[in-house]
Amino acid sequence: MSQAMDFLLWTKGPMFTIAMVIFAVGLLARLVEIFVLGRATNYAEPRANEWLPGFRTVLTRTVADPGTFERAPFNVVVGWVWHIGFLMALLLFIPHIELIKGVLGISWPGLANPVIDFFTAVTLLSLVATLVHRMAHPVKRHISTVEDYLVWTIVFLVVLTGYLAYHRLVSPYPLALGMHILCAEIFLIMLPFTKLTHIFTAFIARWYNGAAFGRKGVQS
């Protein structure tokens, strides 16, 4: 408690550097590991060029087809809600924009805090819903691994500590903010080594998918 400010400065200083380095090394290693493998030459006469369908799938796969939506509405809607909420809080909250500006030097307009607050609350609720769903749905329960629960926990903690810090529900504030930053750093460190990698690789995967189908004349 009396070390709250020291803790905050540690999370903002050395720990941030460590997290950032592990994240960057891990992620780049991961991406290079994927791309270096390459693809075998395809000799089959294509119906279409694969680039455009690939990029189209990168976008279109964000929305579920009507049939899937009908069969798994909860999965689709809750997945959407929490992803959007998470991204809004991550990318459009002014302090986060300042952080990104401080690190990468780029910035964009943010949203008013009450809007972010609302989305954060919604995100928290939907994250709880995803956990319940993961434990209750036979398929999800069956395919879930320790990693899935671990990743859920850290994502939830990142959002929760952010919410607590914003509302200053943990005292003193430096402790609350430090916990939030630390959780975000653990998130960053875990990212390249867990399914969190999908934040980056899902777009690669979608492109490969769209390209493979597109070459055969199907928009996947």
């Binding site: 960057a24 290079v32 994927i34 300042e98 030097g105």
Partner: peptide, 30 residues
């Protein structure tokens, strides 16, 4: 600097360097 900005000096450079190291590590492994 806003409260949310980390204290790391030259974070961009650190990030790029680490990324480059990662690329080399990944490249070697791959």
């Amino acid at each position: 600097e806003p409260v949310s900005v980390p204290l790391t000096a030259n974070p961009g450079t650190t990030l790029l360097t680490a990324g480059a190291v990662g690329a080399v590590v990944g490249g070697t492994a791959a």
